[in-house]
Amino acid sequence: MSDSLMVDEHRSKRQRTESEDAEPKPPPLVRSTEYWFDDGNIILQVESTQFRLTKSMLSMHSSVFRDMFTIPLPPDEPTVENCAIAILSGDTAEDWILLLGVIYPKTYLGGSPSARLLTAMLRLSKKYDFPLIRKDCVHRLKQEFPTSLKKYDKTNWNFIKDDPDAFLLLISLAREIELHSILPQLYCSITTLFPNKYLRRILDPADTSLAASDRLACLLGHTNLLRLQATTTLAWLDWNAESPPIPAEDCCSSSDCADAARTIFISIFNPPPPSRLPEIWILNDWNKDWDLMLCTTCRRKAKEIYNAGRETCWQELPAAFGLPPWEELKSLDFE
């Protein structure tokens, strides 16, 4: 091989090595198309996005920014269009776009914000101390996920109906911002309402939607709730007991009610495809279809057992997922 070819080959290898070792260039800075105000006097840079905003608006909402703006800038501090630049590390531009949509609303928020919007507002309002926004978000979450059965029975889950991943998103948020009192109901929702969907995701090691501790809590809770309902809400279905609750002593059609209890038991604990997991009836309302299968006397007795069981299950709900009692969970909330 000639000297010139060896030099060319060496140069080529060196160029490739230097190229491979070089750190990737950061993405170019872009200005927000929605939140770049001509009268803005501060620029927030989040990831590669810059927002030109007003100090007065940020200071009105946030004590962190209010304090920040009282500190004079060094004379050689770089500026853009005579505006100082505040680089916010650890945040995402997507979260800030959602939060700024609340601070600078184009329409009245009203109604029901999405779980994604609530997550962004709570995360940033806690970090930068936006007390009014944070208080409103926490209030909404505690309304949707209360700590009493009476309030639970009145909830509608307004902002998560159309978001299939809302429960996973809110579990991670509750951990992050220390809103512990909503965790039992979030875990319960995953394990009771959507077990075939969510438990498979929890068992999938490639799915990183939840932390390992939350995965374990859900799996543990699913097993514990199955056991709990057998002695509470569904105790009236124990047709193998020496003195089964159904049929009742004064039942007018004991064989029919006994068969009904057996049929309901099998449908819950051995459901036909495509559902492969037993159903969990601990907080659900009484199934009105069961009314048609039982006589008046047995129906009354079964409902009494079922409704008393719901009260017991609610009190035991945190423990089923390895959490402290309701009152302790409330005391652990960050506010």
Rank of each mutant, 00 (worst) to 15 (best):
Y35T: 02
W96D: 03
R31Q: 15
S275W: 05
L5T: 15
D238R: 15
L292K: 12
T119H: 09
D204E: 12
R262C: 11
C251K: 00
N196P: 07
L149A: 02
K330P: 04
W96I: 02
E279Y: 09
S189R: 10
S267N: 10
R262I: 13
S48F: 14
S189M: 10
L225R: 02
L29T: 05
E20K: 15
E279P: 07
T49W: 06
P26R: 07
H10V: 13
L124G: 07
R310Y: 04
R31F: 10
R123D: 05
D285Y: 06
L277A: 09
D204G: 11
S275N: 12
P74D: 13
T79K: 13
N287Q: 11
D162Y: 11
L88F: 01
L283F: 04
P164G: 11
Q50C: 13
G221C: 06
T297V: 13
L124H: 05
S253K: 09
P78M: 05
Y187L: 01
R16P: 01
L210R: 02
L323S: 00
N270D: 14
G111Y: 03
D21Y: 12
L169N: 11
Y198T: 09
V102Q: 07
L99A: 09
C298N: 08
S112N: 10
E176H: 12
F321S: 01
F130Y: 06
D39K: 05
S19Q: 13
L225A: 01
I171H: 05
L99H: 09
T223W: 08
S209P: 06
W314H: 04
D207N: 14
R123M: 08
D291C: 06
N158M: 10
I305A: 12
F167C: 13
S243D: 13
I87D: 03
A22S: 10
R14G: 12
A320K: 04
L292S: 13
P72Y: 01
I103S: 02
H222L: 03
F194N: 13
L170I: 08
Q185D: 05
E242F: 14
T233G: 04
I43N: 07
S4E: 15
I42A: 05
S59K: 07
P75K: 11
S172H: 09
I133F: 06
Y306K: 03
I264G: 08
T119M: 11
R201E: 11
V30S: 11
P27A: 13
S62P: 00
F194I: 10
K161C: 11
I171M: 06
P75W: 00
F159V: 06
K25M: 12
F194L: 12
S62Y: 05
E316K: 06
C252S: 15
T155W: 02
T49C: 09
K106T: 09
F167N: 12
S331T: 14
A115V: 04
A86S: 09
Q185L: 15
E279A: 14
D129A: 06
S48D: 15
I171N: 05
I171E: 05
F130K: 04
I280N: 03
I85E: 02
T223G: 01
L237H: 08
R276M: 13
A258V: 04
D8A: 15
P75N: 14
I42H: 05
L219R: 01
A115T: 10
S172I: 04
